[in-house]
Design a protein around this nucleic acid. Structure first.
Lengths: 218, 218
DNA sequence: GTCTATATTGGGATAGAC
DNA sequence: GTCTATCCCAATATAGAC
């Protein structure tokens, strides 16, 4: 499969055009759902799945808790959909990288985006082995599809970067991939922010530098 | 303060010698407490604080739940003491490094130890900003003392390694320190283990290599 | 569809017998 | 000090009125 095919990640148009435009009620419903997902995103980023409660979500949105269950059947599904939307945003960033760009720079740009999202509180934790959310995610097909798509795109760049000598050829590609994924939820970010000594931009660049350059002198 | 002073981290002997040796009952009590801490350590490493239940701890040790509360007043304190013991083990490793060793090698050895402990299930998560355990830890003086001691020892090595040119002089020491701490709870470890393609030793070396050498070619 | 009020479960902590 | 049985609160999920 070619790199360009892997990088065309925009969603296909719906097969059937809607017969009429959504009613006011439907628009309101959709807007509320979006507000819920925004709140969930923020809460997942700040507290994580296990510590996030449905009461908090409802309170943040300004609706009653039972209303949440009209939109999402469970807390697990709610979080899974929020993660799905996150991957959509990440796939948008991936497909926005120019094909002429050096693959290592594409990798760095995606990492920068993820780190910025983490710092501004819009990056839910990636699912660690420990989270009770993890099992729900792999069983949520829309999430899994996007994860595969993202993994393929990143894998293509990694292979290309190894081929052009910019990424170490001695490291297995999986190690490179997982190392990049893990940086998006690296607690170093929050530790550095807490010192109050660096701007968000400086923190992002310090993370990118240590990730690609390592701690040792060159 | 000199490096050797910072590195003498062994505990001072008790000021008052015990008048008699512990009774059988006391020995039994101490052994049970040790068994509890071992179980907690394992559970913190596999599930994390929030997902660990007191029922599980009791079940693992083979005692009733109320007995736990004869040893520790709360789940928070139980975890805090387990973390305190973990730092003791880490301080032992730190003080075991020969003073003649290059400081970067001491840093690598401590990192290797932490990674191995993580892989064999005896490394509780370092407290992320999100964990509800975190507040309890900083208020637990014995933990905090050890944390300060460890930080000072690592800081001394980092400064020395920057001075001898083995660690990048352009990176702030805090960035180096937090980066090393974060590697001990890096999910990359578990991702790599799950592939089943590497031995634990290979995983440790891959992590040390990417941490100090980075992803980019040299 | 949204709310108030409630069922239900899981889990931290404790009372009281032995 | 250890157990059985229990309390109690928090949090997911739902029943039922409007």
């Amino acid at each position: 499969m070619s790199a360009s095919a892997l990088l065309s990640v925009t969603q296909p148009a719906p097969a059937i055009a809607p017969a009429r435009r959504p009613s006011f009620r439907e628009q309101q419903f959709a807007a509320r759902e979006q507000a819920i997902l925004t709140a969930v995103n923020r809460l997942l980023a700040t507290k994580g799945y296990d510590l996030m409660t449905m009461d908090e979500v409802a309170g943040e949105v300004g609706i009653a808790k039972p209303s949440l269950y009209k939109h999402f059947v469970s807390k697990e599904q709610l979080a899974a959909v929020a993660m799905e939307k996150l991957l959509d945003r990440m796939l948008d960033v991936i497909s926005a990288q120019p094909l002429t760009q050096a693959p290592i720079d594409s990798l760095k740009q995606v990492l920068r985006w993820a780190l910025k999202a983490h710092l501004d509180g819009s990056m839910p934790l990636l699912p660690s082995t420990r989270s009770s959310l993890r099992a729900a995610l792999v069983n949520h097909a829309p999430y899994f599809e996007r994860l595969v798509k993202m993994t393929e795109a990143m894998g293509t760049w990694i292979e290309a970067a190894k081929a052009d000598g910019s990424v170490s050829g001695t490291l297995p590609s999986e190690v490179v991939m997982y190392t990049l994924f893990a940086r998006a939820c690296d607690p170093t970010l929050e530790f550095l922010r807490e010192t109050g000594q660096y701007t968000d931009e400086q923190i992002v660049e310090l993370m990118v530098t240590t990730c690609f350059g390592g701690l040792a002198s060159r």
